[in-house]
Design a protein around this nucleic acid. Sequence first.
DNA 1: GTTATGACGACCG
DNA 2: CCGGTCGCCATAA
Length: 115
Amino acid sequence: MSSELTKRIYQIVQDIPYGKVATYGQIARLAGNPRAARAVGFAMRRAPDSLCLPCHRVIFQDGSLCTGFAFGDPQIQRQMLKKEGVTFDDQDRVRLDRHRYIPEPGGMPDGNPSL
DNA sequence: GTTATGACGACCG
DNA sequence: CCGGTCGCCATAA
């Protein structure tokens, strides 16, 4: 069965609030493996419906969506996010700077999020 | 146990 | 800016 890492991924994705989005890389990072971005994608596909994972809130680090697969149609995910209040730029990319999911909002005073 | 694939990300040209 | 390639991790065959 899924390794601890994968289970961690499910928990993180499930913890993504409404109107927010997270990238595969960030999820992998939160899961403990910053390089497991691909594993995250794999986990999403393997994710059981029982968990009701908001995989539509999981996007690329670039802010682009996983067009070509979606839930049947590539535009579905984009519309779902828009419906949640997520905004897109002229390039159909999510404004991560505005909808980036932050597990620990500390509000770095110096603006040094150690990214 | 090894090889191949993928809903990624970073790097190079 | 865009396209192609390599690398990393986990799962399937």
